[in-house]
Every structure is written in C-alpha cells, then in structure tokens.
Design a protein around this nucleic acid. Structure first.
Length: 409
RNA sequence: GCGUCGGUGGUAGAGUGGUCAAUUACAACAGACUGUAAAUCUGUCGCCUUCGGGCUACGAAGGUUCAAAUCCUUCCCGGCGCA
C-alpha cells in the first residue's frame, strides 16, 4: 500500500532492536513508540491536546467495544474515528481477538495479559473443565466467535471478515487481523488447534482486507500466536510472514499476541522476531511495563500498546517513578508537598504536589485520574522515546542497565 | 418545667437477656492490575497474644441475673411535642 511505509534508521548492534519511522496517512510515528490505549474512542480522562502535549504520537482504540457502542457504522458516518474523537494523528484498532480470551476462558478467573504463577490468588483453569460454573461471554467456533455483550447481554457473531469490516468503518491507519488469544495455561494440543484457527482467520482477514478499497489507506498487521511453545511461535511467525492473497499481497506488518507467563514473554518475542522480515514493523500487543519495554525494544519490537499506565494511574493511584512504582494513596503522601518526581517534565510534576494528588484521589475528584494518567503516560512515552535516542546514539545497553538498576532496586 | 423518643466501635446505623468484640455501609490501612467487563477488585480494620486464649468496651454510676449493649434506678446529653 502506498501511504504506509516503515524505514529503519539505526539498529542496536548484536541484537534485533532498531529505531525507525512508520509513515501513515495521518503522519509519522518515530519508533520504538508507546501507544496509549483509548478503548472506547477515548484515552480515559484525557483530551487529544493532553495526549499530544505528553508526547503521544499514536493511540489504539478497540474494535469490539466500539462495535457494541456506539456502533462502527455510526463512527463511519461521523467521518471515522479520527474525526469522531478529534485525534488527527496515527491511530490503530485492535481486532477483537483479545476479547475472545478476556471474555472467554479468562472471564471471571482473574487471568489477564501476563500471568504471575507464583501468585496463589490466580486460579489456573483446567482445559478439561470447560464447565466450571463461570459463565463465559465468548465461545469460539472455527468460523468465528459468538460474543454476548457485556453491556446488555445481546448476542453477536464476529468472523475475521466482520472484524475487518468493522475496522474499515472505524478507519484507523493500522488495523489487525482477527486472532484467538489463548491462555498460557492451555496445553500444547489446544495451543496447536487455536494456532491453526488463528492462521486460517489471518488468511481470511488478509483476503478480505486486500479486496477492499480501504486497503489503500489502512495497513493490516497479521497477528502471531503460539503461546509459550517455541515451535508453535516460530511456525506462526513463518506462516504469517509468508501469507499471501491469491493476488500475492501480504501483511503490512505484524502483531505479536498472546497472554504470557512473565518469563515466557521475552523469549517468545525473540523467537518470533528472529523470523519476521526485518523491513516490516512489529507491534507487541498489550505489553507495557518498563522492564518489558526494554526487552521488547532490544528484541526488535517497534510498537507497544498497554492499558497499564492509564489503568494503574486512574484506578489505584499507582504512579511510575524512576525508583519504581509508588501509590499516591499511601498515608505518607497526604502531607508531602514535593512533586511526584522532581525532575519529571510532565504537567502534573511541574504544577502540583504529592499532597494535592493524594487529596484528589482521597476525595475521588476526577482530575486526580486525569493528572495521574498524564504522568504515567508521559513517563512511559518518555521512557520509550529515550530508548530511541539511545539507540540512535549507540548507548542503548548502558541506558537499559542503568535504568533497570534503579527502577527495580 | 412536663411529656416523649433516643444516646452502640473513626462516622452512619443494625442488634433489644446467653450463639456479640458486636450485621452492614462509609472512612481508614495495605495489596493486585500488561491488545480495558476496570474511576475496578482483594485483604485488614478494639487492645494484647507463646494464636490456646486473655483484657477492655455499646452516654455515666449503681443494681437485678449463673449471664446485661439488651432489664431496673438515678444522673448527664440530644431530637420532638406541650407549657
């Protein structure tokens, strides 16, 4: 496609990492880059101006949620997502594949994007006990997925073609093939079955997309799955990167999906990126803690999206600092008149104290969520932007070691 | 002044002889969160403890009873009504 381009500026020696630029119809993204998540056509609590000011280059919205509410056709009629939400920079939409997981097997079980097996509160589901008493909102068939709306219980059927059609109506610059995100607790046999399904859905997504005029202005990324299994991950990377339409058209880039064990995350990314063609961009879906960003960048990831910075900020007052995360609701901050971080350049740190933010959270004032989100997004955006600079300077490994030594102490 | 209803843990408010250290909510304190079922969820929440239990508590002081937040007496305080 014409308007979508990726170029590499510089690589990290002896690793897969690189700094580059993705060009889209709504402007360039300097990579590596962090993508704030605006699920329902809004990064919660933030205006476009705030996002721009804190350094966001691009946002990601969610196909499934917008399909349910307000409806993708309404957004099409509004002139597309860019016009609807007044964000005129690059934009991505998710495919709905993650909701196959979060509203399906993971529903009601406390399982999320990254499992911490040491945590006894996490219930590991057994594949065999499909009937575990917890109702699911998504059930998977080979042709597509049945969803029951979490809003009103209505039934919906989403196929790969339907996902792409919705994403065409939404009109993001970069869209994803419909996939099945599996739990790392699934056995090998199921992972294999699910992977075949994801590949079949990828082919259908690709064929459908490339047959439509929207493929001239929207780039489609194929999603790699395969769980924690090296063989399946590599198979998936090979299959998706070699996939073609009957006319010989291919994916414009790649997404790396899956729910992970913390320790599997980094190796999975490396296995996949060793195989994916270097000249196309890669997006690691749903990952964004600082230590994971370093590993991802070093292993050749160009884009990351993650709800963690905004959700952590908004729902629990957990703020990123160079010394690790702090919770503004801790009693010690009630009368602490220092900024969150003295050397932070964000709007919160330049203008307000810890005591003020603590007050906003304790009194449940909505500005608290907004200010905390500004800080966390700034922190993460700035972190990844700094990684980019260090790649260009040739000092990424030193920066990584120095940052993590302090952050994780 | 008379009558009447009430005074319970940080707050509101259940409980009306033993199963009550006392339902519940809020607040407080700690924790979780990785393509957002998420401005959500979890745990703790009188004091001490060798985790068996011990101690102090339901306005105050007395009393009845094997046993009182719960019954009686007096006092203090508050709401309402009548003077």
């Amino acid at each position: 496609m014409k308007e979508f381009r990726f170029s590499i500026e510089k690589k990290i020696p002896n690793s897969l990492g690189r700094a580059g630029v993705i060009s889209t119809p709504h402007g360039d993204i300097k990579t590596p880059a962090f993508v704030p998540v605006g699920t329902k056509a809004t990064v919660k609590g933030m205006t476009s101006e705030m996002l721009t000011d804190l350094g966001a280059q691009v946002v990601l919205a969610n196909t499934y949620h917008l399909y349910l509410q307000p409806g993708d056709e309404l957004i099409r009629d509004a002139g597309g997502l860019h016009a609807f939400m007044n964000w005129h920079k690059p934009m991505l939409t998710d495919s709905g594949g993650f909701q196959v997981f979060s509203l399906g097997v993971a529903y009601g079980k406390g399982i999320s994007k990254v499992l911490h097996p040491a945590d006894p509160s996490v219930q590991i589901p057994e594949r065999s006990s499909a009937d575990d008493g917890v109702p699911r909102l998504a059930t998977i068939g080979n042709d597509g997925v049945s969803f029951r709306s979490h809003i009103n219980g209505s039934l919906h059927y989403i196929t790969p073609e339907k996902s792409i059609e919705i994403q065409h109506n939404l009109g993001a610059d970069i869209i994803f093939a419909f996939d099945e995100c599996t739990s790392p607790t699934e056995d090998r046999r199921y992972q294999e079955e699910a992977l075949h399904r994801t590949h079949s859905w990828a082919q259908r997504s690709l064929n459908y997309h490339k047959s439509k005029p929207n493929s001239q202005k929207q780039a489609l990324l194929g999603v790699i799955q395969g769980g924690r299994d090296e063989e399946l991950r590599k198979l998936s990377a090979k299959t998706i990167s070699e996939m073609r339409t009957p006319d010989g058209e291919e994916f414009d880039g790649f997404g790396i999906g899956g729910s992970f064990d913390k320790e599997d995350l980094h190796s999975s990314v490396r296995w996949v990126n060793e195989i994916l063609p270097e000249e196309k961009p890669r997006h690691l879906l749903g990952i964004g803690e600082p230590e994971d960003l370093f590993e991802g960048v070093e292993n050749g990831v160009d884009l990351f999206d993650c709800v963690a910075p905004t959700r952590n900020a908004r729902t629990t007052g957990s703020l990123y600092t160079k010394d690790g995360r702090m919770n503004i609701l801790n009693a010690q901050y009630r009368s602490d008149f220092n900024p969150i971080e003295p050397d932070c350049g964000c709007y919160l740190c330049k203008n307000f104290t810890r005591a003020y933010l603590a007050h906003l959270f304790r009194s449940k004032e909505m500005l608290g969520s907004t200010l905390a989100s500004i800080h966390n997004l700034y922190f993460i955006a700035n972190l990844v932007a700094t990684m980019r600079e260090k790649i260009l300077e040739g000092t990424f490994p030193e920066y990584k070691a120095q940052f993590l030594a302090r952050y994780q102490k």
